[in-house]
């Protein structure tokens, strides 16, 4: 059985077991969330050898060279030594300005990080509670016009963090936020490029930032947003987005419901990605942003690519729920 050395303690690791699973099995508490190599909250550094390549997928080159890796996707062949990453995961204290229910399921949280906090619209942060419970959330605000950090939190019945945010978080409370991460961002150098954005539930958060960033930069190409949910509780900022669509001829907003009830006739009765793929059959030259349900994101990534979008132009941000 291979040995895992973590912070100078050794643990027996089952063959094929990831570093994260091994530590959790031994009762070692380490930050983690998505368990799918996406959120980067389980970032660690190897102290003796190069980590396996899949465990470094998605990391910046500079981090890769310093042997950083993601514990949740790291299953090395033999013995392995690791340490918590330290200074790269800078945690800034952030005070809660407001917690507002936009629907019964979605809360809007506004935070005021201490000191300078640079980010780009569409990036995400890892949000940590005092007891180190950590979850990734996308940023919905704009860095240059809004002096708060806005997150959208969907309440999940099994979600420790989201239930706590919905039920207990108060203005004035202090949390910690990580350095912003992710590349789900607008590129001002291609103002004429058509943009397709598909989000489910609070997958709208980064898209709301990206759209307003694009409009702010005077984007001239068409922008199509498809926001979907199984019911009305997952669709939010509807009036704001309708207003934005009235103000900007290039911006098209298509709110979708799986099965609209009577009196919800102004919603498209279709899943958001299906409505998008049905209307836009030639995606050559488009830039695509997909956020939310992992199955929707991965399926739509494949379909928009097959419809002609270049892989490098597809930003996929699957929101994995963290098991208890």
């Amino acid at each position: 059985m291979p040995t895992l050395i973590f912070e100078k303690q050794s643990y027996q690791r089952n063959p094929d077991e990831t570093v994260l699973d091994c530590l959790l099995r031994h009762g070692v508490s380490v930050p983690h969330a998505c368990r799918n190599g996406v959120c980067q909250s389980c970032l660690m550094r190897s102290t003796d050898s190069d980590p396996p390549a899949p465990a470094q997928h998605g990391l910046k080159d500079s981090l890769r060279q310093q042997r950083y890796f993601l514990a949740c996707t790291c299953a090395p062949e033999g013995d392995f030594a690791a340490t918590l990453s330290g200074p790269v995961l800078i945690q800034l204290p952030a005070r809660v300005i407001s917690v507002e229910k936009l629907t019964r399921r979605i809360a809007r949280v506004r935070l005021n990080p201490e000191g300078a906090f640079d980010y780009r619209a569409g990036q995400f942060i890892n949000l940590a509670r005092g007891d180190c419970l950590t979850r990734p959330y996308s940023i919905a605000s704009l860095p240059y016009t809004e002096d708060f950090l806005e997150l959208h939190v969907a309440r999940h019945e099994q979600g420790r963090m989201s239930r706590w945010i919905h039920d207990e978080l108060q203005p004035g409370n202090e949390l910690a936020v990580s350095t912003p991460l992710g590349e789900c961002c607008y590129r001002p150098e291609h103002p004429e490029q058509p943009l397709l954005l598909v989000g489910t539930g609070c997958g709208l958060a980064p898209l709301y930032g990206v759209i307003r960033d694009a409009l702010h930069h005077g984007h001239t190409g068409p922008i199509w947003l498809y926001h979907g949910s199984r019911d009305r509780e997952g669709l939010y900022l509807v009036e704001e987005l309708r207003g934005l669509a009235r103000e900007h001829d290039t911006f098209n907003y298509v709110p979708c419901l799986d099965s609209p009830a009577a009196g919800e006739a102004d919603f498209t009765a279709r899943r958001a990605h299906e409505a998008a793929l049905a209307r836009h059959t030639d995606m050559k030259g488009w830039r695509v942003f997909l956020c939310g349900h992992p199955e929707m994101v991965n399926q739509t990534k494949m379909k928009t690519y097959l419809a002609g979008a270049a892989l490098a132009d597809i930003h996929a941000d699957p929101f994995y729920l963290t098991a208890l």
Partner: peptide, 28 residues
């Protein structure tokens, strides 16, 4: 060529089952 070639492979019913469940970026 990668973008065009990989798209052809995924659309080709003779071979696309070999790519099922594979991470697209890694495969590219």
């Amino acid at each position: 060529a990668v973008d065009i070639f990989y798209r052809k492979m995924l659309a080709d019913n003779r071979v696309n089952r070999f790519f099922e469940g594979v991470d697209m970026d890694r495969q590219a």
